[in-house]
Design a protein around this nucleic acid. Structure first.
Ligand SMILES: Nc1nc2c(ncn2[C@H]2C[C@H](O)[C@@H](COP(=O)(O)OP(=O)(O)OP(=O)(O)O)O2)c(=O)[nH]1
Ligand SMILES: [Mg+2]
Ligand SMILES: [Mg+2]
Ligand SMILES: [Zn+2]
Length: 579
DNA sequence: GCCGTTTTCGGCCCGACTGTTTTCAGTCG
């Protein structure tokens, strides 16, 4: 029997919240379900394991007696009576209706009760026939907005995007807005500033006394397909590629509070505002207002605001309500690391397999970034689609790397390989070949849909192989569609901690693997990490910032990341021979 | 439903934009 994962539990609690909302339940109860769901989704250790070892699930924030009882029932029986009763009362398909932009719980309820609509298709048909406008507080315009929302959903333009799509577009927008004379300051906010692994929309904050002029430029940006809304201080657009963007404008004097607000996360904001309340203030994006006399306090910087509330400035990537507010109060925020702390990488490709640049070009690009070392790890022989190297070609490549090393003496090069972990757990080169390599990185690329036991056995075999120094992209997820394999990550972490095998934080925006949540859990388990761009071309080294952000979001410090070590120490620690 | 540097009961963040609302509800940030 397999237990529900944290993700599945969180989804269930969110679905309960949605149906309760349509039912018209107490909004605070609904918030409680959503809050529990979020905390559980962000918990690095599986609740099923905690439950099995007899831990009290109420230790999790947001989980009290009622939800703990439900989890207990779920783990014991695989069912939840409360959910079964609820779905008997409120059709589950209404949750899809709730997904339609512009359709909230109130409208979902009236459409269901007044018109018997319970599906997206039904709502669409009713809207096309002009039936929705007969409902209270409904009219032609609202009906049209709903139809547009359904079409956007059908074109799959309402999902989430990875950083590789969001980041470049955001830089372009930022450059245009930053050049305007009316703009005093402009910054990305929201999940992009926090560097979440996926981005729902782009958020921009501009400090200006002329918001209309700035928003005018914003809606005329080249790739804007549609203006979704535009008021005095805020405008939303959708770009041609489906990404949405919000621009919020505030007077320059409000910058500190506004940036804090618009950076989020939502649950972080709620907690900060509750903290302000307890201290006798009310906080919004404009000011911190003293309740007793209505005196407003304005802040130029976020740091000044956090300090006023008795907190250290919290880096945006930590603002997820994972305990960062408590840590900021007690001076226990993680030290973190920056891109400049990374001294080299041990996982990259060249034209020898599926890379776009030669070994020399990769070496020179790494050197130009200030790297002290680089391991070339082309694919191993069984990965035919990626032009994996035969043993013979591996030998030839070794001579090529030596030749490049002679031409590019400023950076230490080693020959490694990204070696397939085959379906039976064996590696793709024989031991003597592995022994001849300076650095072996192991990857599970194939058979990621195998069952938990098989997959975990493969990962453990790789970690325990004495030649393997790194397990690359450990979960195998691909953003934004493919979830990782069903590995027992707790077993993976324990094995890696025991053997000292490094777990990768793959910085590719398609992967970010380990994900932030698991980085945090891995660190707790004593695992050492390493951040690699898995560069397939020189420009991929720019992705390092995403990997570093993922480490930071997982509360890492430099000492837990092996490639923050300078060359000599790295060599010593990795047992690399001096040639 | 959860929770406690005033509380085990009584609170629970706060504001922008839209539409048909003639005084504000709903949705979203
Ligand atoms: N105080 C408060 N702030 C909010 C609320 N909803 C959103 N915000 C703030 C914090 C968010 O990070 C910011 C931008 O909102 P978004 O909906 O774009 O969320 P965010 O960018 O965090 O995630 P996303 O990737 O876009 O889904 O606005 C809210 O209900 N209350
Ligand atoms: Mg956003
Ligand atoms: Mg937004
Ligand atoms: Zn690779």
């Amino acid at each position: 029997m397999s237990y529900p994962t944290n993700r599945q539990i969180a989804d269930l609690l969110n679905r309960i919240a949605g149906l309760l909302e349509i039912k018209g339940e107490n909004p605070f109860k609904i918030r409680a379900y959503r809050r529990a769901a979020e905390q559980i989704a962000h918990h690095g250790q599986e609740l099923a394991e905690l439950w099995q070892s007899g831990d009290d699930l109420r230790r999790l924030e947001g989980v009290g007696q009622a939800i703990a009882d439900k989890l207990d029932e779920l783990f014991r029986t695989g069912r939840l009576e409360f959910w079964e009763r609820l779905t008997a009362e409120v059709p589950e398909s209404l949750l899809e209706v709730l997904e339609i932009p512009e359709v909230g719980p109130a409208l979902a309820r009236t459409m269901w009760q007044e018109l018997g609509l319970t599906t997206v298709a039904g709502v669409q048909a009713a809207a096309e026939q002009g039936k929705l406008r007969t409902l209270p507080r409904m009219g032609k315009k609202k009906e049209a907005r709903i139809l547009a929302g359904i079409r956007a959903m059908a074109r799959r333009q309402t999902g989430r995007f990875h950083l590789g799509q969001a980041w470049p577009l955001a830089r372009q927008v930022l450059a245009v807005l930053g050049d305007l004379p009316q703009v005093v300051r402009v910054e990305t906010a929201g999940s992009l500033r926090r560097m979440r692994d996926t981005i729902g929309d782009l958020d921009f904050l501009a400090a200006t006394d002329h918001p209309a002029a700035v928003m005018e430029v914003f809606v005329r940006l080249p790739d804007v397909a549609e203006v979704l809304g535009s008021g005095e201080t805020k405008t939303s657009v959708r770009f041609k590629n489906g990404l949405q963007a919000d621009l919020r404008c505030v007077p320059p004097a409000r910058w500190g509070t506004a940036l804090q607000y618009f950076t989020g996360s939502k649950s972080h904001n709620v907690k900060i505002r509750e903290l302000a309340q307890r201290q006798g203030y009310s906080l919004n994006e404009y000011a911190l207002t003293r309740e007793q006399d209505g005196k407003p306090f304005l802040f130029d910087t976020e740091a000044a605001l956090y300090e006023f509330l008795g907190l250290a400035w919290i880096p945006p990537h930590l603002r997820e309500d994972w305990g960062e507010i408590e840590a900021a109060r007690s001076g226990a925020l993680p030290a973190g690391l920056s891109v400049a702390d990374i001294r080299g990488e041990v996982h990259c490709h060249s034209t020898w397999s599926d890379g776009r640049n030669t070994i020399e070009e990769m070496a020179r690009a790494a050197l130009a970034r200030g790297y002290e070392y680089l391991v070339i790890t082309d694919h191993s022989r069984s990965l035919g689609v990626a032009n994996g190297l035969s043993v013979e070609r591996l030998r030839q490549q070794s001579r090529e790397i030596e030749a490049v090393q002679a031409r590019v003496p400023g950076i230490r090069l080693w020959q490694g390989a990204e070696v397939e972990v085959k379906a039976d757990g064996s590696l793709d080169y024989p031991d003597d070949v592995l022994a001849g390599l300076d650095f072996v990185v192991a990857s599970v690329h194939t058979g990621l849909r195998q069952d938990r036991e098989t997959l975990t056995r493969r990962a453990l075999a790789a970690i325990q192989n004495p030649h393997v120094k790194v397990l690359a992209h450990p979960t195998g997820r691909l953003l934004t569609d493919r979830p990782g394999g069903d590995f027992d990550m707790e077993a993976v972490f324990q094995a890696a901690a025991r053997t000292g095998t490094l777990l990768e934080i793959n910085a590719s925006p398609y992967r970010l693997d380990l994900p932030d949540v698991l980085v945090r859990r891995a660190i707790a388990a004593g695992v050492k990490l390493i951040i690699n761009c898995d560069a397939h071309g020189v420009e991929d080294f720019d992705n390092l910032q995403f990997g570093v952000a993922t480490a930071n979001r997982g509360w890492a410090a430099a000492e837990q990341v092996a490639n923050t070590l300078p060359l000599a120490e790295f060599e010593a620690q990795m047992g690399l021979v001096q040639k």
